[in-house]
C-alpha cells in the first residue's frame, strides 16, 4: 500500500518547517492567505514581497520544487476560468493578438492567478511538510469541534482503503472491456457508486463494532499517539525517544494497577 495513489502529498524531511507545530503552520497559512486576499489591486510591491516571503519558506522547507510543481495540477480549473475572464468582463477593451479583451478582465485574471497560485503553493507546502496525523492534532488544538476532527481522522485513515476499492472496481470494469465514454455508460458508473457506498458504509459499521468491542463510549482520546508516562519511560523500552512532549500523565490510581483477576 501507499504507492501510486497520487494523493500522498507529504514529503518526508527534517527542515525547520517540518518540525514546526502543525497548528502554527495552519495559522500561518491562514494569516498569510488572508493578507494576500486583502492586498488591494495595484499594490504590486506588496505582491512582490508576499511572493518573496513564500518563495523563501518553500526553499527553507527543502521540499523539491518538482514535487510541488507536479502537484500544482489542482490549479488547472482556475487557469481555465482566468483565461475566460478577459473575454467576458466589462469595461475598456484592449487589443491583444487580434483579440478584443477587457482591460479590467485582464487585470482581474492576473490578480486571480497570482493569489490562487500563492494559495496553492502555500497549501502544498503545508501538506508536504506536515503528516496528516499531525495536521489533525493541530486542528484539534485550534479548537475545531472534536466531532469534526474525528470524522476527518476516520476519513484520512480510510481514504486509501476506499479509493483503492474504487480503483479495483474500475480495473474490473476495464478488464471486461468497459470504459465510460458517453452518457449511455452512466448507469454502469452509478452501480459502482452504489456498491462503493455499501462497502464504505458497512466498513463504517464494522469499525464501529470493533470500537464498541474495545469499550468505546462515544469519545476518542486524541493523545494516544505518544507514550503516556512522563518523559523518561520507566520500563526502559526506549520507545520514548524524540517525542519531547509536555504532557505529564496523571498519576495512576492504585486501583487500576491491581491484576485483572475475576472470580
Amino acid at each position: 500500500m501507499g504507492a501510486g495513489h497520487g494523493h500522498r502529498l507529504h514529503f518526508h524531511g527534517h527542515s525547520a518547517l517540518h518540525r514546526a507545530a502543525a497548528h502554527h503552520k495552519v495559522l500561518a497559512l491562514l494569516g498569510f492567505m488572508l493578507v494576500v486576499v486583502a492586498t488591494p489591486r495595484g499594490w504590486w510591491w506588496a505582491y512582490l514581497a508576499e511572493g518573496v516571503l513564500l518563495g523563501g519558506v518553500v526553499l527553507a522547507s527543502r521540499v523539491p520544487l518538482g514535487f510541488l510543481a507536479r502537484r500544482m495540477v489542482v490549479e488547472t480549473p482556475v487557469l481555465v476560468f482566468a483565461a475566460l475572464l478577459p473575454l467576458i468582463a466589462h469595461g475598456e477593451r484592449v487589443d491583444v493578438l487580434g483579440l478584443s479583451l477587457s482591460r479590467s478582465g485582464l487585470e482581474g485574471a492576473a490578480l486571480l492567478l497570482v493569489k490562487a497560485t500563492f494559495g496553492v503553493v502555500a497549501g502544498l507546502t503545508l501538506a508536504a511538510t506536515t503528516e496528516p496525523q499531525a495536521l489533525l492534532a493541530g486542528l484539534a488544538r485550534l479548537r475545531l469541534p472534536h466531532q469534526l476532527v474525528q470524522i476527518a481522522a476516520f476519513m484520512v485513515r480510510y481514504l486509501d482503503v476506499v479509493t483503492d476499492e474504487m480503483r479495483r472496481m474500475r480495473v474490473a470494469r476495464e478488464a471486461r472491456g468497459f470504459t465510460a465514454r458517453d452518457p449511455r455508460h452512466w448507469g454502469v458508473l452509478a452501480r459502482s457508486v452504489g456498491a462503493l457506498f455499501i462497502r464504505s458504509y458497512e466498513r463504517g459499521e464494522r469499525v464501529h463494532l470493533a470500537m464498541l468491542a474495545r469499550g468505546y463510549d462515544g469519545r476518542i482520546p486524541l493523545d494516544l499517539d505518544r507514550p503516556q508516562a512522563p518523559a523518561v519511560a520507566p520500563r526502559g523500552h526506549g520507545h520514548a525517544h524524540g517525542h519531547a512532549h509536555e504532557h505529564a500523565a496523571a498519576p495512576v490510581p492504585a486501583l487500576l494497577t491491581a491484576p485483572a483477576e475475576h472470580a
Binding site: Q147, Q150, S200
Partner: peptide
Amino acid sequence: TAPLAGLVAAFVFA
C-alpha cells in the same frame, strides 16, 4: 457519527 460519517466522507471523496 465519527466512524460512519468518516467512511461516508471517504466515499464522497472517492
